[in-house]
């Protein structure tokens, strides 16, 4: 009796989290416009998704924004973490505390305050994409910083000194000794930056150009409208993203297992 209850709890939890996505996935392959009655198999939603220019622009725009802001965040946050880690203790602490502000702050407040500073006070036009990109960097850079700092702490500090003693310049030692040792943190920081940007609604709403939409802002606007063709095409988008996420997760697991095997083999 007691043994059975654990799996039941997990199963219920998973049903709650996945049933809506899976049911929607099934319906995305039909011509129904509401959940309930299945009428017939149809790929119309996928055809709409891939042939409507508006949807294509929105998806590519979201991806470009995520990639661009994640690259900037990764460089800035990694450099910042290295700099803070080797600064005076006090300086490092101050940077660490300020770094926490966007993490604990509500996205609405972050987005709104950036909009006031950049657009209202400094007069930078939203159409330049500058406020939007800065906003997404503010959103994700603290997490890059937070994933790099632990790697710096774990790192063997004497290797860097050894490299310098052996004649490497600080720049070379940084590139060849420090960066490889913290690369795990940099990669997970980058991945985190991508997912945060893809998931964001609020910062984009307050800083984006009027005619540009991310997936989030587009979906929210679409649910307000009554355009059923677009609505069901978004079911197809949701399904496609779900499949991509599953593939990425499986790929990551295979990669990790292989790496573990290799490392295990060495020991």
């Amino acid at each position: 009796m007691k043994k059975a209850i654990g799996p039941v709890i997990l199963a219920l939890g998973l049903i709650f989290m996945y049933a809506p996505i899976l049911i929607l996935a099934v319906y995305s392959f039909t011509d129904s416009t509401t959940i309930g009655a299945i009428r017939g198999f149809s790929l119309a939603n996928y055809i709409t998704l891939f042939t409507t220019p508006e949807l294509g622009e929105m998806i590519w725009g979201t991806l470009a924004l995520a990639l661009g802001s994640a690259i900037i965040s990764t460089i800035l946050g990694t450099a910042g973490a290295i700099g803070a880690f080797y600064s005076k203790k006090r300086t490092g602490q101050v940077i660490g505390v300020v770094n926490q502000i966007p993490v604990v702050n509500a996205d609405v407040v972050t987005g709104f305050s950036l909009c006031i500073l950049l657009v209202v006070v400094l007069g930078i036009s939203k159409e330049t994409f500058v406020p939007l990109i800065i906003g997404h960097v503010v959103l994700s850079v603290p997490f890059v910083y937070l994933s790099v700092i632990p790697k710096l702490k774990q790192m063997d500090q004497s290797l860097y000194e050894a490299a310098l003693d052996l004649g490497a310049s600080p720049a070379v030692a940084l590139r060849r000794i420090i960066i490889p040792q913290i690369s795990g943190g940099i990669v997970s920081g980058f991945a985190m930056a991508i997912t945060l940007s893809l998931d964001d609604y609020f910062i984009a709403t307050y800083t984006k150009p009027a005619t540009f939409d991310t997936i989030s802002t587009y979906v929210v606007n679409a649910t307000r409208g009554s355009h059923t063709e677009i609505k069901t095409a978004l079911w197809a988008l949701s399904t496609a993203i779900f499949v991509i996420v599953i593939c990425v997760v499986i790929g990551m697991n295979i990669y990790r297992n292989k790496k573990d095997d290799r490392e295990g083999g060495l020991v």
Binding site: M17, I23, T223, S238, I241
Partner: peptide, 24 residues
């Protein structure tokens, strides 16, 4: 991993799914 994975799917799309189910 299954319990964490939904975090990587855009929340507005997940809510769209939930909304359709709740409406049904």
């Amino acid at each position: 991993m299954l319990f964490v994975m939904p975090m990587w799917i855009n929340f507005t799309l997940r809510l769209t799914a939930l909304k359709e189910i709740l409406t049904a």
